[in-house]
């Protein structure tokens, strides 16, 4: 468990949720710095970006934590973190820690041809999915990318109806069925809590974090 000041190096695509969980739990000892969310589309660049960030902030905190999963780095991120004894979020990617491993496993078993969207990806669908896959320039590639998919699953965090409507529209645009699953911040909070709660200086109030406080 971490102690003292904690610096969380987070993927920009989950910044909103990490900050919300921190604030809801009153983790005043936790500072969050983010890397560009666009790295989601270039996972091979994540290990170096994280490594550079660690170098930049390592003297600013007692403990560092990396809010990335493996995120398509094929173990390369772990090869950066393990020698430094820095922990990261568990699992393969943000879909897994937003849904929780068991629920995510059930979703993929239920339909392997599922294309997942988080709230962030719903908001930034045009930039990260359409432009990121080059579909704005080459719409004829849509079949090659999505031909084997059957549905879009919105793994929702904040549960807004507006985002749900947007996600349904994205599914329609891709010609896929739409499924909505509301997970809130619970699974991510459950992953963050063991490493971030109680990590700050001891106070008269004792541990400041609790899962019940997270939405």
């Amino acid at each position: 468990m971490a102690t003292g000041r904690v610096m969380v190096i987070a993927c920009g695509a989950i910044a909103r949720e990490v900050l919300r969980i921190r604030d809801m739990n009153g983790w005043d000892h936790v500072e969050v710095q983010c890397l560009p969310a666009g790295l989601h589309n270039t996972p091979q660049a994540i290990p170096k970006a994280v490594s550079d960030k660690i170098e930049q902030v390592r003297n600013q905190a007692d403990t560092l934590f990396v809010a990335y999963a493996d995120c398509g780095t094929a173990g390369a991120l772990d090869r950066v973190l393990e020698p430094l004894n820095i922990e990261r979020l568990p699992g393969a990617h943000c879909y897994e820690f937003f849904a929780g491993s068991e629920a995510f496993g059930d979703l993929t078993d239920e339909q392997p041809g599922s294309f997942y969207l988080t709230d962030f990806l719903v908001r930034h669908f045009e930039r990260l999915v359409i432009q990121g896959l080059g579909l704005d320039r080459h719409p004829e590639l849509a079949g090659q990318y999505f031909g084997n998919y059957r549905r879009v699953v919105h793994l929702a965090q904040d549960g807004s109806r507006s985002l749900r409507r947007q996600a349904a529209g994205h599914a329609k645009r891709l010609g896929l069925d739409f499924d909505y699953r509301q997970f809130g911040d619970g699974p991510l909070a459950a992953a963050l809590t063991p490493v971030l709660e109680n990590a700050g200086p001891a106070t008269d109030n004792g541990p400041s974090a609790s899962l019940e406080k997270t939405p």
Binding site: Q44, A45, L133, G134, H138, L141, Q144
Partner: peptide, 11 residues
């Protein structure tokens, strides 16, 4: 080498 990305390779 990271000069081209997946869309360009597919094309």
């Amino acid at each position: 080498d990271g000069i081209l990305f997946v869309p360009e390779v597919l094309m």
